[in-house]
């Protein structure tokens, strides 16, 4: 069901939700598609600004070359590391079976 303004369709929202690992419901898809369409219509205004020769800003404060010496710093114990784990086994995080290929 493509949206009226054509900015973002329901299918596209479904695709984006999959990319973002969100198992959204059908009802949500309807709501989000409509809302995102309105929001996108509004934020698309950035395109009105003539900014071809303007450098982009990725960082609010212009810092460069911030480094740390290659020195050990105490980290977490295994117990601390696993303290929040939904499941753990043999000192490792236990997770459900992985379908995807290893990257």
């Amino acid at each position: 069901m493509p949206s009226e303004s054509g900015a973002i369709s329901r299918d596209e929202v479904a695709h984006l939700a999959r990319l973002a690992r969100l198992a959204v419901t059908e009802t949500e898809l309807d709501t989000f598609a409509g809302q995102l369409d309105v929001i996108l219509g509004s934020v698309a205004r950035v395109g009105e600004v003539a900014a071809e020769d303007i450098p982009p800003t990725s960082h609010a404060v212009p810092l460069e070359n911030v480094f740390r010496p290659d020195e050990l710093r105490p980290g977490l114990s295994q117990e601390q590391a696993l303290s929040g784990a939904p499941a753990a086994e043999e000192g490792r995080f236990r997770v459900p079976r992985i379908l995807g290929e290893e990257a």
């Binding site: 740390r68 020195e71 050990l72 710093r73 980290g75 977490l76 590391a81 000192g91």
Partner: peptide, 27 residues
């Protein structure tokens, strides 16, 4: 083979006990 990881001060030694060379950043 740096002493520590790319973005945190955890050791990089091969073969350590699991999850003992970790900190909030690399976790």
């Amino acid at each position: 083979s740096t002493n520590t990881k790319m973005f945190c001060g955890c050791a990089t030694t091969f073969g350590a006990e699991p999850n003992t060379q970790v900190c909030p950043t690399c976790l």
